[in-house]
Amino acid sequence: ILLGIQDALSDSDYAVVIRIASDAAERERLYQECCVRGRADGVLVVWMTATDAFVDRLDAESLHAVLLNALHPRLTSIGVDHDDAAVRAFEYCAGLGHRRIGLIDRRQDPFDPATPGICQRGYENAVAHTGYALVAEYERLAEPSASAGAAAIDALLELAEPPTAVVVASDAQAIGVLEAARATGRRVPEDLSVVGYNDTPVTRDLGVTTMHVPLRELGRVATESLLELLAEPATSPRARNLPTELMVRRTCAPPTVR
């Protein structure tokens, strides 16, 4: 994403100041900080929910913002269709013959435990479309980290009828899934098929089947949208999704046990 932002700003006079929030309180502090008059010309909010209070403050200061992988009706947003990506990942596993397909998800808002996972709706729609039974135990929410992915797959593999395939909502989680599965003696993909999400360089090197998310393009398009708002402040908010693509590699195969 940062490379895409850099691409879009290469011919401009703007520079990027990066702030990282580790919890909800820090997010609110950063929102207040960036709205101080003269502190910034515009704001890119990456994978964080824009609160109504933040949007009100933006309006009060006539400050423009664009969201990446988040939605608010009063702000322009650039993202991907997580529902569609989850459906295609699930249907790929089902097409290989898997009937017990799990989901290791990540929350839409990382700082709000009440929000659903980014892939939950698409996953559940795919389950219904294929005629499979929706098994609540097959859905797990976890932080987007390898350790959280490992803990989630450990819990799934302890079930009486564990999944033979799992759709994972981030490549970081998928790496943890691979490590934990192999630690329990499961072979990937013979005993467990794994589909990741993002298509990061590490998963490409490891041969992980994953949903490619055009991260650099997201950064570029979001930044270009912000530059357009700075040039034409009356531009109406809009939401745009960039396409994802299933990258088939070496971590999926037909199930050996049906």
Rank of each mutant, 00 (worst) to 15 (best):
A128N: 14
V194Q: 03
R29K: 15
M211Q: 07
A155S: 15
D83Y: 09
T51R: 15
A50F: 09
V168T: 02
D199L: 08
S145W: 04
R216G: 04
R258C: 03
A25M: 14
W47F: 10
V17I: 15
H98S: 05
A148F: 02
L71D: 12
R216A: 06
E224N: 06
P243S: 07
L68A: 00
A222E: 01
R186I: 05
V202C: 08
S170T: 13
D83F: 06
A40L: 11
E245P: 07
S22F: 13
M211H: 04
Y123A: 03
Q32W: 08
L2K: 14
S12G: 05
R182L: 06
R187W: 08
R220L: 00
C252R: 00
P110Y: 08
T184E: 13
I20N: 14
P255K: 02
A53S: 14
A24Y: 15
V257N: 08
E139P: 03
N198C: 07
F111A: 05
S193H: 09
P214D: 01
I118A: 06
P254Q: 06
E224S: 05
Q32L: 10
E179L: 13
V166Q: 05
Y14R: 06
P255E: 02
G102Q: 10
D83E: 13
L75G: 00
I101P: 01
A160F: 10
Y132K: 11
G42V: 02
